[in-house]
């Protein structure tokens, strides 16, 4: 974690930015009728490793405070980027179709489903995952509350539940158990820990701790 660049610093020091890349490719796209070169690189017989390079695009994104300069295929979702390229496996893949909420992360402070977020659309954004919630060894109050209230059984949905719960309080939608149930409805728990999850959120909300 010590060698991380400050996001603004890395922006200044990078050479050809993705914006420039996009501007150029936009101009090309506007005039090109033929299928995109990147998509057909393999079909044209290029070696797979070379073709893969063609198909990747630069992405700069800050994840849990660390500026990242990446090259990814446009089809990569934020969820797959986190789990498969950055080894941040705390964010879970449940349904992969925006129905379960296990992949909930914050993008620029807003909770979203990482499985339906194309990573390319997070250029320049600040992403927070469950790994970025604690302050070193000091758990986030919501993490403490989930442990205290037994807000999980198998634990698979828990990272998404906690990210959503934090957002729920920040949005101002945690004033009553009913409101919490409505605003946590995008996070499914098949073990059925719902009542304890509501208790955990109410506890943090009423405790008045900064989330």
């Amino acid at each position: 974690m010590a060698d991380q660049q400050h996001p603004d610093e890395s922006a200044e020091h990078s050479g050809a930015s993705r914006r420039d890349f996009l501007k150029q490719s936009s101009i090309m796209a506007a005039f090109a009728i033929t299928p995109p070169a990147a998509v057909t690189a393999v079909e044209k017989g290029l070696h797979e490793t070379i073709a893969t390079r063609f198909e990747q695009m630069p992405l700069r994104v800050t994840i849990n405070g660390a500026a990242q300069q990446l090259n990814i295929e446009p089809r990569v979702t934020l969820l797959d980027l986190l789990r498969e390229q950055l080894n941040l496996t705390g964010t879970k893949k449940g349904c992969d179709h925006g129905q379960c909420g296990a992949c909930t992360v914050h993008v620029d402070g807003t909770r979203v489903n990482a499985c339906l977020t194309l990573a390319m659309t997070t250029e320049g954004c600040k992403v927070t995952t469950i790994e970025g919630l604690a302050d070193g060894d000091q758990l986030h109050p919501m993490q403490e509350a989930f442990i205290k209230h037994d807000g999980f059984q198998c634990g698979y949905c828990t990272p998404g539940q906690i990210m959503s719960a934090v957002a729920c309080i920040r949005e101002g939608h945690a004033d009553s158990p009913d409101e919490i149930r409505e605003y946590m409805s995008g996070n499914i728990c098949r073990c059925g820990a719902y009542s304890n999850i509501v208790d955990a959120i109410m506890d943090v909300k009423q405790g008045g701790q900064k989330v």
Binding site: L22, K23, S25, S26, A29, A30, F31, A32, I33, P35, P36, A37, A38, V39, E55, M57, E73, P74, R75, L118, M120
Partner: peptide
């Protein structure tokens, strides 16, 4: 399936780009 990704900076450019693609 993979695809080409571009970004539009103006609505007019977006319309032009979508008209040019297959």
């Amino acid at each position: 399936k993979n695809f080409q990704y571009t970004e539009a900076s103006q609505p007019a450019q977006a319309v032009q780009q979508i008209g040019a693609g297959r």
